[in-house]
Design a binder for these strands. Structure first.
Length: 297
DNA sequence: CCTTATGCCTGAATGC
DNA sequence: TGCATTCAGGCATAAG
Protein backbone atom coordinates (compact mmCIF):
# COMPACT_ATOMS: atom_id res chain seq x y z
CA UNK A 1 0.00 0.00 0.00
CA UNK A 2 1.49 3.29 -1.01
CA UNK A 3 2.40 5.37 2.04
CA UNK A 4 4.72 8.36 2.15
CA UNK A 5 7.93 6.58 1.02
CA UNK A 6 6.17 4.85 -1.85
CA UNK A 7 4.45 8.03 -3.03
CA UNK A 8 7.73 9.93 -2.73
CA UNK A 9 9.49 7.29 -4.83
CA UNK A 10 6.81 7.57 -7.49
CA UNK A 11 7.06 11.37 -7.31
CA UNK A 12 10.81 11.32 -7.91
CA UNK A 13 10.39 8.97 -10.83
CA UNK A 14 7.78 11.16 -12.45
CA UNK A 15 9.69 14.35 -11.74
CA UNK A 16 12.50 13.00 -13.90
CA UNK A 17 10.21 12.57 -16.87
CA UNK A 18 7.00 14.59 -16.90
CA UNK A 19 8.05 18.26 -16.76
CA UNK A 20 8.03 19.71 -20.26
CA UNK A 21 5.72 17.08 -21.71
CA UNK A 22 2.26 18.03 -22.94
CA UNK A 23 -1.10 16.39 -22.36
CA UNK A 24 -2.73 15.33 -25.61
CA UNK A 25 -5.68 13.29 -24.41
CA UNK A 26 -6.90 11.62 -21.26
CA UNK A 27 -8.81 8.36 -21.43
CA UNK A 28 -10.80 7.65 -18.26
CA UNK A 29 -12.19 4.14 -18.15
CA UNK A 30 -13.41 4.30 -14.54
CA UNK A 31 -15.40 7.56 -14.20
CA UNK A 32 -16.02 7.20 -10.44
CA UNK A 33 -12.29 7.71 -9.93
CA UNK A 34 -12.74 11.41 -10.74
CA UNK A 35 -14.19 13.05 -7.64
CA UNK A 36 -14.72 16.73 -8.44
CA UNK A 37 -14.56 16.71 -12.22
CA UNK A 38 -15.79 14.63 -15.12
CA UNK A 39 -13.85 13.19 -18.00
CA UNK A 40 -14.87 15.92 -20.44
CA UNK A 41 -13.91 18.75 -18.12
CA UNK A 42 -10.63 17.06 -17.33
CA UNK A 43 -9.78 16.82 -21.01
CA UNK A 44 -10.90 20.35 -21.82
CA UNK A 45 -8.87 21.75 -18.95
CA UNK A 46 -5.65 19.85 -19.53
CA UNK A 47 -5.42 19.25 -23.28
CA UNK A 48 -2.40 21.03 -24.66
CA UNK A 49 -1.13 21.98 -21.21
CA UNK A 50 2.43 21.27 -20.06
CA UNK A 51 3.59 19.44 -16.95
CA UNK A 52 5.62 21.79 -14.78
CA UNK A 53 6.19 19.92 -11.51
CA UNK A 54 5.35 16.83 -9.48
CA UNK A 55 4.84 17.39 -5.78
CA UNK A 56 3.75 15.37 -2.77
CA UNK A 57 2.03 16.12 0.51
CA UNK A 58 1.59 13.17 2.83
CA UNK A 59 0.35 10.37 0.59
CA UNK A 60 -1.14 12.77 -1.96
CA UNK A 61 0.59 13.24 -5.29
CA UNK A 62 0.24 16.63 -6.97
CA UNK A 63 0.71 16.90 -10.72
CA UNK A 64 1.11 20.53 -11.80
CA UNK A 65 -0.09 20.94 -15.38
CA UNK A 66 -0.39 24.44 -16.82
CA UNK A 67 -2.50 26.48 -14.42
CA UNK A 68 -4.04 23.30 -13.05
CA UNK A 69 -3.06 20.74 -10.44
CA UNK A 70 -4.26 17.16 -10.40
CA UNK A 71 -4.40 15.54 -6.97
CA UNK A 72 -3.93 11.78 -7.02
CA UNK A 73 -4.71 9.57 -4.06
CA UNK A 74 -3.41 6.08 -4.76
CA UNK A 75 -5.59 4.40 -2.17
CA UNK A 76 -4.59 0.81 -1.53
CA UNK A 77 -3.40 -0.43 -4.89
CA UNK A 78 -2.96 2.60 -7.11
CA UNK A 79 -0.03 2.55 -9.53
CA UNK A 80 1.11 5.50 -11.61
CA UNK A 81 3.61 4.58 -14.27
CA UNK A 82 5.34 6.40 -17.05
CA UNK A 83 5.66 4.55 -20.29
CA UNK A 84 6.49 4.96 -23.91
CA UNK A 85 4.25 3.67 -26.66
CA UNK A 86 7.44 3.34 -28.69
CA UNK A 87 8.41 0.39 -26.53
CA UNK A 88 7.09 -3.10 -27.21
CA UNK A 89 4.93 -4.77 -24.57
CA UNK A 90 7.38 -7.32 -23.31
CA UNK A 91 8.73 -8.05 -19.89
CA UNK A 92 12.29 -8.03 -21.08
CA UNK A 93 14.73 -5.40 -19.98
CA UNK A 94 14.97 -2.99 -22.85
CA UNK A 95 16.57 0.30 -23.77
CA UNK A 96 14.95 2.21 -26.55
CA UNK A 97 17.52 2.91 -29.28
CA UNK A 98 16.35 6.48 -29.88
CA UNK A 99 15.10 7.80 -26.55
CA UNK A 100 17.42 5.75 -24.37
CA UNK A 101 14.45 5.21 -22.07
CA UNK A 102 14.95 2.13 -19.96
CA UNK A 103 12.17 -0.31 -19.50
CA UNK A 104 12.77 -2.60 -16.56
CA UNK A 105 11.60 -6.14 -16.15
CA UNK A 106 8.00 -6.43 -15.03
CA UNK A 107 7.04 -2.97 -16.13
CA UNK A 108 3.36 -2.43 -16.16
CA UNK A 109 1.40 -3.22 -19.29
CA UNK A 110 -2.19 -1.92 -19.68
CA UNK A 111 -4.84 -4.42 -18.62
CA UNK A 112 -8.38 -4.44 -17.23
CA UNK A 113 -7.21 -2.66 -14.08
CA UNK A 114 -5.80 0.27 -16.03
CA UNK A 115 -8.33 3.02 -15.43
CA UNK A 116 -6.67 6.15 -16.81
CA UNK A 117 -4.27 6.68 -19.68
CA UNK A 118 -2.88 10.17 -20.13
CA UNK A 119 -1.48 10.42 -23.63
CA UNK A 120 1.48 12.79 -23.83
CA UNK A 121 3.46 14.12 -26.74
CA UNK A 122 6.65 12.39 -27.92
CA UNK A 123 4.82 9.05 -27.72
CA UNK A 124 4.82 8.88 -23.95
CA UNK A 125 1.94 8.25 -21.61
CA UNK A 126 1.09 8.21 -17.95
CA UNK A 127 -0.91 5.19 -16.83
CA UNK A 128 -3.01 4.77 -13.74
CA UNK A 129 -3.76 1.22 -12.62
CA UNK A 130 -5.71 0.39 -9.47
CA UNK A 131 -6.90 -3.13 -8.72
CA UNK A 132 -9.06 -2.30 -5.71
CA UNK A 133 -10.27 1.00 -7.13
CA UNK A 134 -9.84 2.91 -3.88
CA UNK A 135 -7.86 5.65 -5.60
CA UNK A 136 -9.23 9.13 -6.27
CA UNK A 137 -8.37 11.96 -8.67
CA UNK A 138 -9.21 15.62 -8.18
CA UNK A 139 -8.72 18.64 -10.44
CA UNK A 140 -8.04 22.12 -9.08
CA UNK A 141 -6.55 25.30 -10.37
CA UNK A 142 -3.14 25.50 -8.75
CA UNK A 143 -3.97 28.83 -7.15
CA UNK A 144 -6.99 27.22 -5.46
CA UNK A 145 -5.10 24.17 -4.30
CA UNK A 146 -4.48 25.41 -0.79
CA UNK A 147 -8.21 25.75 -0.26
CA UNK A 148 -8.99 22.21 -1.36
CA UNK A 149 -10.63 20.07 1.34
CA UNK A 150 -8.15 17.30 0.62
CA UNK A 151 -5.09 19.39 1.45
CA UNK A 152 -6.70 21.41 4.22
CA UNK A 153 -7.45 18.19 6.05
CA UNK A 154 -3.81 17.18 6.11
CA UNK A 155 -1.62 17.61 9.16
CA UNK A 156 2.10 18.32 8.81
CA UNK A 157 4.14 16.30 6.35
CA UNK A 158 7.06 14.69 8.24
CA UNK A 159 9.57 16.27 5.84
CA UNK A 160 7.90 19.67 5.87
CA UNK A 161 8.67 22.69 8.08
CA UNK A 162 5.57 22.31 10.25
CA UNK A 163 6.46 18.90 11.55
CA UNK A 164 7.82 19.53 15.02
CA UNK A 165 7.76 17.61 18.26
CA UNK A 166 5.43 20.20 19.76
CA UNK A 167 3.04 19.95 16.83
CA UNK A 168 3.01 16.16 17.05
CA UNK A 169 2.43 16.33 20.81
CA UNK A 170 -0.47 18.70 20.24
CA UNK A 171 -2.10 16.23 17.85
CA UNK A 172 -1.55 13.20 20.04
CA UNK A 173 -2.53 14.83 23.32
CA UNK A 174 -6.02 15.71 22.15
CA UNK A 175 -7.34 12.25 21.40
CA UNK A 176 -8.19 9.28 23.56
CA UNK A 177 -7.81 6.89 20.66
CA UNK A 178 -4.99 4.35 20.66
CA UNK A 179 -1.70 5.92 19.56
CA UNK A 180 -1.61 3.44 16.66
CA UNK A 181 -4.95 4.78 15.44
CA UNK A 182 -3.81 8.38 15.96
CA UNK A 183 -0.69 7.85 13.84
CA UNK A 184 -2.91 6.68 10.99
CA UNK A 185 -4.94 9.90 11.25
CA UNK A 186 -3.70 12.07 8.37
CA UNK A 187 -4.73 15.26 10.19
CA UNK A 188 -2.22 14.55 12.97
CA UNK A 189 0.68 13.57 10.74
CA UNK A 190 0.38 13.11 6.98
CA UNK A 191 1.95 10.11 5.33
CA UNK A 192 1.94 7.21 7.77
CA UNK A 193 -0.08 4.10 6.90
CA UNK A 194 -0.30 0.73 8.53
CA UNK A 195 3.23 -0.38 7.69
CA UNK A 196 5.14 2.62 8.98
CA UNK A 197 2.85 3.28 11.95
CA UNK A 198 3.72 -0.19 13.23
CA UNK A 199 7.40 0.30 12.46
CA UNK A 200 7.51 3.69 14.19
CA UNK A 201 5.84 2.36 17.33
CA UNK A 202 8.22 -0.58 17.49
CA UNK A 203 11.25 1.64 17.02
CA UNK A 204 10.02 3.98 19.73
CA UNK A 205 9.09 1.07 22.03
CA UNK A 206 5.61 2.41 22.62
CA UNK A 207 2.58 0.22 23.24
CA UNK A 208 0.28 0.76 20.21
CA UNK A 209 -2.84 0.43 22.35
CA UNK A 210 -1.95 3.19 24.75
CA UNK A 211 -4.39 6.10 24.47
CA UNK A 212 -2.57 8.88 22.68
CA UNK A 213 -3.42 11.50 25.26
CA UNK A 214 -1.75 9.42 27.96
CA UNK A 215 1.62 9.30 26.25
CA UNK A 216 4.52 10.68 28.26
CA UNK A 217 6.76 13.38 26.85
CA UNK A 218 9.49 10.78 26.52
CA UNK A 219 7.23 8.52 24.48
CA UNK A 220 6.17 11.35 22.19
CA UNK A 221 9.79 12.33 21.74
CA UNK A 222 10.65 8.73 20.87
CA UNK A 223 7.86 8.58 18.30
CA UNK A 224 8.84 11.94 16.81
CA UNK A 225 12.48 10.90 16.63
CA UNK A 226 11.65 7.61 14.92
CA UNK A 227 9.38 8.87 12.16
CA UNK A 228 11.76 10.56 9.73
CA UNK A 229 14.58 7.96 9.84
CA UNK A 230 12.14 5.12 9.23
CA UNK A 231 10.51 6.89 6.31
CA UNK A 232 13.88 8.02 4.94
CA UNK A 233 15.26 4.49 5.04
CA UNK A 234 12.31 3.28 3.03
CA UNK A 235 12.68 6.12 0.53
CA UNK A 236 16.33 5.13 0.16
CA UNK A 237 15.13 1.60 -0.59
CA UNK A 238 12.56 2.88 -3.07
CA UNK A 239 9.61 1.87 -0.89
CA UNK A 240 8.06 -1.30 0.45
CA UNK A 241 6.54 -3.77 -1.99
CA UNK A 242 4.35 -6.48 -0.50
CA UNK A 243 2.22 -7.13 -3.53
CA UNK A 244 0.95 -4.25 -5.60
CA UNK A 245 3.24 -1.28 -5.07
CA UNK A 246 5.39 -0.28 -8.04
CA UNK A 247 7.39 2.86 -8.73
CA UNK A 248 6.96 5.11 -11.76
CA UNK A 249 8.98 2.65 -13.86
CA UNK A 250 6.94 -0.34 -12.75
CA UNK A 251 9.65 -1.66 -10.43
CA UNK A 252 9.27 -3.02 -6.92
CA UNK A 253 10.78 -1.40 -3.84
CA UNK A 254 13.21 -3.28 -1.63
CA UNK A 255 12.31 -2.01 1.82
CA UNK A 256 10.17 -5.00 2.84
CA UNK A 257 13.23 -6.87 4.05
CA UNK A 258 14.04 -4.01 6.43
CA UNK A 259 10.71 -4.13 8.26
CA UNK A 260 10.97 -5.15 11.90
CA UNK A 261 7.34 -5.90 12.72
CA UNK A 262 4.90 -5.37 9.84
CA UNK A 263 4.12 -8.71 8.22
CA UNK A 264 6.08 -10.57 10.91
CA UNK A 265 3.27 -11.59 13.29
CA UNK A 266 4.12 -14.86 15.04
CA UNK A 267 7.82 -14.50 14.23
CA UNK A 268 10.49 -13.68 16.82
CA UNK A 269 11.19 -10.07 17.78
CA UNK A 270 14.54 -9.09 16.29
CA UNK A 271 15.47 -7.33 19.54
CA UNK A 272 14.35 -9.68 22.32
CA UNK A 273 13.22 -12.87 20.60
CA UNK A 274 9.67 -12.78 21.96
CA UNK A 275 6.92 -13.84 19.59
CA UNK A 276 5.52 -10.80 17.80
CA UNK A 277 1.78 -10.41 18.35
CA UNK A 278 -0.77 -9.52 15.68
CA UNK A 279 -3.90 -7.83 16.96
CA UNK A 280 -6.66 -5.52 15.81
CA UNK A 281 -6.54 -1.90 16.97
CA UNK A 282 -9.13 0.59 15.79
CA UNK A 283 -10.26 -1.85 13.13
CA UNK A 284 -6.77 -2.17 11.66
CA UNK A 285 -4.25 -4.97 12.03
CA UNK A 286 -1.24 -4.20 14.17
CA UNK A 287 1.93 -6.18 14.82
CA UNK A 288 3.99 -5.38 17.89
CA UNK A 289 6.35 -6.91 20.43
CA UNK A 290 4.62 -7.66 23.74
CA UNK A 291 7.82 -7.25 25.73
CA UNK A 292 9.70 -4.44 23.93
CA UNK A 293 6.69 -2.20 23.51
CA UNK A 294 5.76 -1.83 27.13
CA UNK A 295 5.36 1.54 28.73
CA UNK A 296 8.90 2.78 29.32
CA UNK A 297 10.03 5.17 32.02
C1' DC B 1 -17.69 17.24 19.14
C1' DC B 2 -15.97 12.83 19.66
C1' DT B 3 -15.21 7.87 18.46
C1' DT B 4 -16.46 3.63 16.20
C1' DA B 5 -18.45 1.02 12.45
C1' DT B 6 -19.42 0.40 7.62
C1' DG B 7 -18.83 0.28 2.62
C1' DC B 8 -16.15 0.54 -1.24
C1' DC B 9 -13.18 -3.11 -4.19
C1' DT B 10 -10.33 -7.38 -6.09
C1' DG B 11 -7.45 -11.22 -5.52
C1' DA B 12 -4.98 -14.34 -2.57
C1' DA B 13 -5.53 -17.52 0.95
C1' DT B 14 -8.30 -20.56 3.56
C1' DG B 15 -12.14 -23.87 4.71
C1' DC B 16 -15.33 -27.56 3.66
C1' DT C 1 -11.98 -29.52 -7.81
C1' DG C 2 -14.85 -25.95 -6.84
C1' DC C 3 -17.29 -22.81 -4.41
C1' DA C 4 -18.05 -19.80 -0.32
C1' DT C 5 -15.81 -17.18 3.15
C1' DT C 6 -12.21 -14.30 5.09
C1' DC C 7 -8.75 -10.98 4.91
C1' DA C 8 -5.97 -6.97 3.32
C1' DG C 9 -6.64 -1.39 4.33
C1' DG C 10 -7.10 4.23 2.91
C1' DC C 11 -10.59 7.02 3.57
C1' DA C 12 -15.35 9.05 3.15
C1' DT C 13 -19.46 8.63 5.41
C1' DA C 14 -22.97 6.97 8.70
C1' DA C 15 -24.07 5.77 13.06
C1' DG C 16 -23.60 5.80 17.95
Amino acid sequence: MPELPEVETIRRGLEDKLPGLKVEKILVKLPKLLKNVNSEELNESLRGQTFTAVRRLGKILILDIGVYSVLVRLGMTGQLTFRSSLLPDTNEFYVHPVTGLQRAQGQFVPDKHTHVIVDLNEGYSLCYRDIRQFGKWYLYKTEELENSPELKALGPDPFGPNFTEDRLALGLKKTSRAVKTALLDQSIVAGLGNIYADEVLFASRVNPEKPAKELSSAEIRAIFTAIKPILQQSINNRGTTFSDYRDADGNKGSNAEQLKVYGRGGQPCLVCGSELVKKTIGGRSCVCCPSCQVIPE
